[in-house]
Structures are given as structure tokens and as C-alpha cells.
Design a binder for these strands. Structure first.
Length: 499
RNA sequence: GCCCCCAUCGUCCAGCGGCCUAGGACGCCGGCCUUUCACGCCGGUAACACGGGUUCGAAUCCCGUUGGGGGUGCCA
């Protein structure tokens, strides 16, 4: 790995020196998202790999917001990045850096390229470029039309970088090896927009140099643009460029890049469904990388210790929700009851709509249910949003019968009326202080009736349907205590009258 | 169109020339446990895209084909 650059002095920017003086011996990486209103799972994975690499190597990770496009600049957009990163537990060194605030540096670099003849002005619109292509019989593209037109600077005039027409630009990629681009396929790209703002390629080169970035770890979709940055880097005399590592794309089941339109890409969606951040991180770490010992679900600290950028696989990785469920369920099972309750309570009022600010008494009741049923619930759910479906009958104060379940247990089932009557009578004498005793009372009724009728009578199904409305669910006994004696008896009675 | 990347079970990852009759995990199927549903445990299913080389020997190296994906903006 071409890791430690031998930069001479803290900055190779010369008169563009910024504020990031530091020795370059330890790696320094950056996570550089564009603020788009939410954090994409792919971006989260990129952030994670940068973070893992930095933590593993003892280096630093900085957060740089790529907001050269003025429309991307709002506090809400920044929060939409920072907040999910915090949720995941990914921290960064120093304060976030805003590219928009470093404009002076970028413009100075543009001036220098202009002065050195490495860049020039162009006033051609998209339509004019297309027209010239057509007239010259050239394929669509720019083809350096304004190189010798001596366009003067002015409103709406852009600055383009003059690319070499021959030779090749090579990216030595840590995960892909040597990737070569023929320069003839590179066009003179825009480095300053018509409104005077620098574009991201330019800002990228300048900021990576100025901030002392040693490794650029990002998505494969940016591999094609790397030659541009490398060319700028060289033209600006920045010395040896950072090492690059282009991570495999995250794709959907149809093997397409995850997209906002088709797929659930916002990290917040997963948080809202009750995926634990630790599970999310663990899952993300396994996309494109795997630990050498094949133990996949493990604490972050171990992942940090084992992480190796050079072991990242180049093939695209399917972000599989089923796998996420499995990992999440494993993390949920491992939670101590109290912690499980903390995490689950917000999801118990309404599935898919965690309640922000529950009323205090209701909250205490819900929390008690969560704590006392923790183990049984943890075994049954993949994500916290699923919890409501198991306990709603305890919390809602009413039963909604599933007619199929009713029919099976009450109509087709043997001696349902007798079961309900006997259970109700025997329960009336109990104080509901022991779940085990409740179990033996209910089961005892079944045994008794089996003996009396000379055939197997199951007492649990009618009781379960009477209490929960459904044919399957949690073990009944602790929930019965939670439901309380009077509610239990009244539901049994209600079912009996409905027969 | 042009440029670039990728290619081991359905999926994620192991394999970096002989230890591979290809390993693990998820999923799926079957069994055990269980007077519900689950959890857990045991077992099974299933892959080196194709064709040429190189080599004593290739899933592993090279070339080609096919297939998939990405890029091709005054977005990043």
C-alpha cells in the first residue's frame, strides 16, 4: 500500500497554505459526503470503512461536507448527515469542514492554473457544444472547442482544465490495482462554474492536499473521475497524490446501484424500523469485506482490530435486508433485559411509529411489559418495530378475534366451553402471583377434561384465543399476570358468551 | 456510442498454484426439542459463467467471449 506519503513539510500547497499542518506519517482520511438531505446506506458504509481504516491505523478521519453547489447548503442538510453518523457511533477528528468556506483557496488554485496556461475560459453552452460536435462530425462531448478562442472572463463564463491529449493517467487503487485511463478519453472539464464557484474535482484536489489526506476511500462510482483529480493534482504541483481505494458499490436485489427512487436507502428508515446501530454497523462492515476467521457477527472493537483495506473485495455487494434482519436479531437477543426495554419501549405503542414522548404512566406500564417479557420477545423479533405485534393485546385493553383462530379453537376444538368455564372458575381462586401456577391451573384443566371425556383435550388454545384473539403468540403465563386477574377473567367470560 | 470496473452456492464472505472430493454464515428443506409461536440443536440443498492458453499441477496467473454494473453534467 502506498500509504505514507513523503510530503516535504506540512503543506505542499505553497502560497495556498491552509490550517492543517501536521506530520504526514500517520494516515489521515476524510469522509466527504454531499449534503443531500439524508445519509445514504452506501455513504454510511463508506464512512464506516474510512473510520475503520483510521481507527485501525491510529490515524485520523475528518468530516468534510462537499457543498460546493450552493443549493446544498443548509443546516438541516448538515444535521441529516451528522446525526445518523452519531447514531452509528462513528466519530471524526476535529470540527466538520465545509468546502464552501474554503472557496478562497479553491479560487486561488484556479487562478494559478489559468496563469500557468493549464486552464482557460469557455463561454459555450451545452447546446452550442452539441452543435459544434454535429458540425465537426464528432461524438458527443466537449473536444476542447474553446482552447484557442481567447474567451475573456465574464458572467456565465466557465473555466476548463486543459487535459493532455495523449499518454495515460494511472490510478493505483488499493482494492483494484492499477487502473489506466487513456488521456484521449478525458475531456477538458469545468473547474469553475459560470457563477464563479469551483466544482468538486478542483475543490477535491485542493482540499485533499491542504488537509493532508493520505488515503481517499470512497465509492466505485467515483473511480472514473479520479484521473481528473490526479491531473489537477499534478498541474498544481502538489507532489505525490494520496492513495486511492474505491469500494465496491452497494447494489439491490436486481444488482443495480442502490437508488433513492427504487430502494430504501436512507439510514433513518432502518432506525425507524428498529434496527440497532451496532447491528447496522456490523452488517455494513461485511459488505465488501470479511474477517479472516469467518466470524461475522462480533463486537466493533474486534472488527477494528481485524479490518484490512487491502482485503476489500472489488465485486459489488448486495445489501440484503434478510441478512440485516439476521444480524439485528442476533444483537437483540444479546441485549440485557433493561437495555432491551429501553430500546423497545418507543416501538411498543404503535409499530412503525416510535412514540417520541409517551405519557408517563402509560410509559411505566409499557416498560414493565417490556422488561418482564424481554427474553420471550427477544427470541421472537428481528427488529424492534415487530414488538408491537406480540404485545398489543396486553396493552390495548381489548381483544380482536382472528376468526380463523376462533373457529379452530372454539368451534372445532374439543370442549371449548367446558375449558373456558373451568379455567375461569379455578383462576378466580388464584392471586396471580405466580406464572408457573397459572400454567399448571390451565394445563390441569386440560388434563382433567381429557380424563373425564376419554379423549385428548387441549386447554391452551381456547384460553389463548379468548385472551389474545390469536392462535399463536408468547407463552401465556407471564402475560396473564401482566394483563391482571380481572381483565383475564373478563376476557374468558366474554369469550364464553360469544360461543 | 465511448471509457472504466466486476465475475466462487439464491445472498454475503473464505480460497491469493498443490492442503479443494471448494469452507463458513444467511436463506431454503428435513429432523430433534416443545400441549401455541418462537429460540436452540442436528442434518441436508446449493457455486468456481464459457473458451483458450501458461504450468508437472489452476477456482487461483494471462488472453478472449459472454453476462452484469458504473461513468460519460457548469451534481457530488
Amino acid at each position: 500500500m502506498t500509504s505514507s506519503r513523503k510530503g516535504s513539510g506540512p503543506s505542499r500547497l505553497g502560497r495556498l497554505v491552509g490550517s492543517y499542518d501536521r506530520p504526514v506519517s500517520l494516515p489521515r482520511v476524510r469522509f466527504a459526503p454531499a449534503p443531500t438531505g439524508f445519509l445514504h446506506v452506501g455513504s454510511a458504509r463508506t464512512a464506516l470503512f474510512n473510520w475503520l481504516f483510521a481507527r485501525r491505523s491510529g490515524g485520523e478521519m475528518v468530516l468534510r461536507i462537499e457543498d460546493t453547489d450552493a443549493s446544498l447548503k443548509t443546516q438541516a442538510y448538515v444535521d441529516a448527515i451528522v446525526e445518523p453518523l452519531r447514531w452509528l457511533g462513528l466519530d471524526w477528528d476535529g470540527e466538520p469542514v465545509f468546502q464552501s468556506e474554503r472557496r478562497g483557496l479553491h479560487l486561488a488554485a484556479i487562478e494559478r492554473l489559468l496563469a500557468d496556461g493549464r486552464a482557460y475560459f469557455c463561454d459555450l453552452s451545452r447546446a452550442e457544444i452539441e452543435q459544434r460536435c454535429e458540425e465537426a462530425g464528432l461524438p458527443v462531448g466537449y473536444h476542447g472547442f474553446s482552447r484557442h478562442r481567447d474567451v475573456a472572463d465574464g458572467p456565465g463564463v466557465v473555466v476548463r482544465f486543459r487535459c493532455d491529449d495523449d499518454g495515460a493517467t494511472v490510478v493505483n487503487d488499493i482494492v483494484r490495482g492499477r487502473v489506466s485511463f487513456g488521456n484521449e478519453s478525458l475531456e477538458d472539464f469545468v473547474i469553475r462554474r459560470g457563477d464563479g464557484s469551483p466544482t468538486f474535482h478542483l475543490a477535491n484536489a485542493v482540499d485533499d492536499c491542504d488537509m493532508g489526506i493520505s488515503h481517499v476511500i470512497r465509492g466505485e462510482d467515483l473511480l472514473n473521475t479520479t484521473p481528473r483529480v490526479l491531473l489537477l493534482w499534478e498541474a498544481l504541483g502538489f507532489g505525490p497524490p494520496p492513495a486511492y481505494a474505491h469500494l465496491p458499490l452497494l447494489v439491490n436485489a436486481k444488482r443495480q446501484k442502490l437508488s433513492k427512487r427504487r430502494d430504501d436507502v436512507a439510514l433513518d428508515i432502518y432506525r425507524g424500523r428498529g434496527y440497532l446501530p451496532e447491528a447496522m454497523v456490523n452488517c455494513l462492515a461485511l459488505l465488501g469485506w470479511g474477517p479472516p476467521d469467518e466470524v461475522e457477527i462480533r463486537p466493533l472493537a474486534e472488527i477494528v482490530a481485524l479490518f484490512d483495506l487491502e482485503a476489500v473485495k472489488p465485486a459489488p455487494a448486495f445489501f440484503d435486508p434478510v441478512r440485516l434482519d439476521h444480524i439485528n436479531s442476533t444483537y437483540i437477543k444479546a441485549l440485557p433485559p433493561e437495555q432491551f426495554a429501553d430500546a423497545a419501549v418507543p416501538f411498543m405503542f404503535q409499530p412503525d411509529a416510535p412514540k417520541e414522548d409517551p405519557d408517563a404512566t402509560e410509559d411505566a406500564r409499557v416498560r414493565e411489559v417490556a422488561v418482564r417479557l424481554a427474553g420471550d420477545l427477544q427470541d421472537r423479533i428481528d427488529k424492534l418495530a415487530d414488538v408491537g405485534g406480540w404485545v398489543d393485546w396486553i396493552l390495548s385493553g381489548e381483544v380482536r378475534y382472528d376468526e380463523k383462530a376462533w373457529h379452530k379453537a372454539m368451534v372445532k376444538g374439543r370442549a371449548a366451553a367446558d375449558v373456558l368455564a373451568m379455567v375461569e372458575a379455578r383462576l378466580a381462586d388464584d392471586d396471580f402471583s405466580s406464572a408457573e401456577r397459572l400454567e399448571s391451573i390451565v394445563m390441569g384443566v386440560g388434563d382433567k377434561l381429557s380424563e373425564r371425556l376419554g379423549e385428548r383435550v387441549r386447554s391452551q388454545p381456547p384460553v389463548r384465543v379468548a385472551l389474545t384473539g390469536r392462535s399463536a403468540g408468547l407463552p401465556l403465563w407471564e402475560p396473564m399476570r401482566l394483563l391482571g386477574k380481572s381483565e383475564t377473567l373478563s376476557r374468558l367470560h366474554a369469550a364464553r358468551t360469544r360461543l
